[in-house]
C-alpha cells in the first residue's frame, strides 16, 4: 500500500491524475473501517486532510460553496442556521468523534444509500463540484448517484465542494435507527420547502440502491400546500404525501430492517416532517439567522 500526501489542491489533482486508482481519504470513517477489518486493500491511499481549501466554505452569488472536507461538527456549528436540514442530519451522524472527522465529501465519495447527508442534499437540490487536472464541473446531487456505492465521478476526479442555496424555507430530516444514537439509518427522509418558488424537495435514504427523491410526492404536495394562507395541510393530504413518498422508495430486506417496514416508516416520517416544517414559526421561514442555545 502506498500513501500519498499532497500539500496543495493542485498537487492533489496532479497525483490523482497520475494515480487514478488512489483512494482519497479524509475523515477515514469509511475507508479506515474497510482497511482495519481487512475488507479492502487499496494500492494507493491519498490523504486530503492537509489541503486547506477543502476545509473552507463561503458564499458566492447567494449560493453556499462548502469545501468537501468541512466536518459535520462544523456544519452544525457554522452553518446550522442556513442549512437546517443538513444540520439535523449531521447531528445523527455517529458520535462527536465521528462528526469531528467525517465530511460530506467523504459521504458523497462513498455514495452509500445510507449516507446521512444525501437526503438533505437531494431535497435542497445541491450540486457537487468535481475537479481534475482537466477542469471543474458541477453535477446536481440528483444525478450524482448511479448505483449502490457508485457515482458519476471519473477516476481522475476528486470532490472539491458541494454547492447549495441557504435554506429558502423550512427544512426537516428524520431517520429511523434501532437505537437512540450512533446508528446507521434503517431509512431516512429529508424535506425542504421553497416558498418563493412554491417547490418542495425530498430525499429518501437507505431505502433503495441509491439515495432517492420522491418526485411524485414533491409535485403532489407543492400543488396542495396553501402557500399564501399557510393553513395546515389536511390529514388526508399528509397521508397521501406519505403514501407517495413510500411508493417512491425501492427498499429491500436486510440486516437492518425489512422492505415493508421501510416503506411504512417513510410514510410516517414524511408526514411528520411536512407537518413540522409547515408549523415552523414565520420568523424562521426565511432560513435567516436564529439564536441558538449555547453549549455543545
Amino acid at each position: 500500500m502506498e500513501f500519498l500526501q499532497p500539500a496543495t489542491w493542485e498537487e492533489a489533482l496532479a497525483m490523482k491524475a497520475a494515480h487514478p486508482e488512489a483512494v482519497p481519504i479524509a475523515g477515514g470513517t469509511d475507508v479506515m473501517v474497510e482497511i482495519n477489518l481487512d475488507h479492502r486493500r487499496p494500492e494507493t491511499v491519498m490523504d486530503l486532510t492537509p489541503i486547506r481549501e477543502l476545509t473552507e466554505w463561503g458564499t458566492d452569488d447567494g449560493v453556499l460553496r462548502i469545501g468537501a472536507g468541512v466536518s459535520y461538527t462544523r456544519l452544525i456549528d457554522e452553518l446550522g442556521d442556513r442549512l437546517p436540514g443538513l444540520a439535523i442530519a449531521s447531528r445523527t451522524v455517529g458520535s462527536p468523534q465521528i462528526r469531528n472527522r467525517g465530511t460530506v465529501g467523504g459521504n458523497l465519495g462513498t455514495a452509500s444509500p445510507a449516507g446521512d447527508a444525501h437526503p438533505p442534499l437531494l431535497a435542497a437540490d445541491a450540486e457537487v463540484e468535481l475537479a481534475s487536472t482537466s477542469g471543474t464541473r458541477r453535477v446536481p446531487v440528483r444525478e450524482f448517484f448511479t448505483g449502490p456505492k457508485r457515482h458519476t465521478m471519473r477516476q481522475d476526479e476528486l470532490i472539491a465542494a458541494f454547492l447549495v442555496e441557504p435554506a429558502p424555507g423550512p427544512q426537516q430530516f428524520s431517520k429511523v435507527g434501532t437505537r437512540n444514537a450512533m446508528v446507521i439509518a434503517v431509512c431516512s427522509f429529508a424535506l425542504a420547502l421553497d416558498p418563493a418558488r412554491r417547490r418542495v424537495g425530498t430525499g429518501i435514504g437507505s431505502a433503495g440502491p441509491t439515495p432517492l427523491r420522491a418526485v411524485d410526492a414533491e409535485a403532489f404536495i407543492a400543488g396542495e400546500l396553501d402557500w399564501d394562507g399557510r393553513r395546515p395541510p389536511s390529514d388526508a393530504t399528509l397521508s397521501r404525501f406519505g403514501e407517495l413518498v413510500a411508493a417512491a422508495a425501492k427498499p429491500i430486506d436486510d440486516v437492518r430492517g425489512t422492505a415493508a417496514y421501510r416503506r411504512h416508516a417513510l410514510a410516517v416520517m414524511s408526514r411528520r416532517c411536512l407537518a413540522w416544517a409547515w408549523a415552523t414559526p414565520p420568523h424562521l421561514w426565511g432560513g435567516g439567522a436564529r439564536s441558538a442555545p449555547e453549549g455543545l
Binding site: I25, N36, L37, V45, G94, N100, R101
Partner: peptide, 25 residues
C-alpha cells in the same frame, strides 16, 4: 471501526477515534 470510542484521542485538539485515522495522516 469508530463504533465504541475506546480509542478516543485528540488530534490537533479535536476529539477523534484513533482507529479511523490512517497513521500517515
Amino acid at each position: 471501526q469508530g463504533e465504541c470510542g475506546s480509542c478516543s484521542v485528540y488530534l490537533d485538539g479535536s476529539l477523534v477515534c484513533a482507529c479511523l485515522v490512517l497513521g500517515g495522516q
